Amino acid sequence: MIFFLVTVNSESIKKDNKYLKSSLEIPVINSDNIEVNNKVNKKIKEDIMNFYEESFKEAQSFLDDFELDESNFVADASFEVKKNTNNVISILIKYYKYSGGAHGYYEYVPYNINLKNGNMISLKDIFKNDVDYKLLINNEIENQIKQPDKQEDQDKVYDFYGIKDNQKFYLDDSKIVIYFDLYEIAPYAAGIPEFPIIVENIKPQIKEDYIELII
């Protein structure tokens, strides 16, 4: 039986000035480990506030350069909890920026956290040392791209050459979901391409101590 020991609350910060309108929803985890809570919450809040500060400077520079009275810049942050157990929590921070034009830009930043120590989990951490995890995942993604439902949609043209060392992913149920930023492997119309990998299918390649964490 899995016990859900972590609650996730939200701290809301709203800022509205002549440079930037911003709505920030910051996750606040509350587990039975205070040290882990402090470590994780501090990291995520600092990252979100850095996003705001950088966006504010961009808007300020734009306004000053063009001598405008007010900018139309928007910078928002929200979050979604993808997996939450007593061992691991996987959170996506969803950033959105708009500075004019046809549409805004959004980016998802993952936090896959080992709740035993508060450390972030990387793809390399999950797989056994003798496993070429990049090759394994690349093959799986290429196979999914070749599926008929991907090929029939002409608006989605994938330009995939392999995952990166710091490849983005999140954990969801018993899956590792690999995903890519806007424009990274496909046009804007394709959105955020996602490729779920079922853990059970690659179980022999995963380190024993991580099987418990991610399943």
Rank of each mutant, 00 (worst) to 15 (best):
residue 129 N to H: 09
residue 15 K to E: 15
residue 47 D to K: 13
residue 98 Y to K: 08
residue 194 E to I: 04
residue 94 K to I: 07
residue 24 L to F: 14
residue 33 N to V: 00
residue 160 F to I: 06
residue 185 I to E: 08
residue 162 G to D: 04
residue 83 K to T: 03
residue 16 D to P: 07
residue 211 I to V: 14
residue 182 L to R: 13
residue 61 S to R: 13
residue 188 Y to F: 15
residue 24 L to I: 11
residue 43 K to A: 06
residue 126 I to F: 04
residue 115 L to G: 07
residue 174 S to W: 01
residue 169 F to V: 03
residue 52 Y to F: 15
residue 133 Y to Q: 02
residue 107 E to K: 14
residue 165 D to C: 09
residue 63 L to F: 06
residue 96 Y to C: 00
residue 160 F to T: 12
residue 209 D to G: 01
residue 180 F to D: 00
residue 68 L to H: 00
residue 42 K to C: 07
residue 107 E to D: 15
residue 133 Y to R: 05
residue 80 E to M: 12
residue 59 A to M: 13
residue 23 S to K: 15
residue 101 G to T: 04
residue 201 N to G: 02
residue 180 F to L: 00
residue 50 N to I: 06
residue 5 L to E: 13
residue 30 N to E: 13
residue 139 N to M: 03
residue 55 S to Q: 08
residue 138 N to V: 07
residue 117 N to A: 09
residue 39 K to A: 00
residue 162 G to I: 01
residue 194 E to H: 02
residue 53 E to G: 05
residue 18 K to M: 11
residue 208 E to A: 02
residue 15 K to Y: 09
residue 126 I to P: 03
residue 189 A to W: 05
residue 76 D to Q: 06
residue 203 K to I: 14
residue 73 F to N: 01
residue 176 I to P: 02
residue 164 K to I: 04
residue 148 P to A: 01
residue 194 E to N: 11
residue 132 D to W: 09
residue 9 N to F: 13
residue 99 S to W: 05
residue 189 A to D: 12
residue 115 L to F: 12
residue 155 D to N: 05
residue 22 S to C: 15
residue 160 F to A: 06
residue 106 Y to S: 10
residue 170 Y to E: 06
residue 129 N to E: 11
residue 177 V to K: 04
residue 92 L to I: 05
residue 81 V to R: 15
residue 2 I to M: 10
residue 121 I to G: 13
residue 28 V to L: 11
residue 181 D to N: 15
residue 61 S to C: 07
residue 51 F to V: 04
residue 209 D to T: 00
residue 166 N to K: 13
residue 112 N to W: 11
residue 165 D to W: 04
residue 29 I to T: 07
residue 12 S to Q: 14
residue 68 L to T: 01
residue 187 P to H: 10
residue 95 Y to S: 03
residue 185 I to R: 00
residue 215 I to Q: 09
residue 92 L to D: 05
residue 159 D to A: 02
residue 81 V to T: 15
residue 167 Q to I: 12
residue 154 Q to T: 12
residue 29 I to E: 10
residue 187 P to R: 04
residue 128 K to L: 04
residue 200 E to Q: 02
residue 95 Y to G: 02
residue 87 N to V: 03
residue 159 D to L: 02
residue 69 D to K: 12
residue 11 E to F: 02
residue 25 E to Q: 08
residue 86 N to Q: 15
residue 80 E to S: 11
residue 16 D to F: 05
residue 29 I to A: 11
residue 92 L to F: 04
residue 66 F to S: 08
residue 198 I to S: 13
residue 105 Y to F: 15
residue 198 I to H: 04
residue 178 I to T: 08
residue 78 S to K: 11
residue 100 G to W: 05
residue 149 D to T: 08
residue 184 E to R: 12
residue 48 I to V: 08
residue 63 L to A: 07
residue 110 P to H: 03
residue 193 P to L: 10
residue 109 V to L: 03
residue 44 I to T: 02
residue 71 S to R: 10
residue 144 Q to L: 11
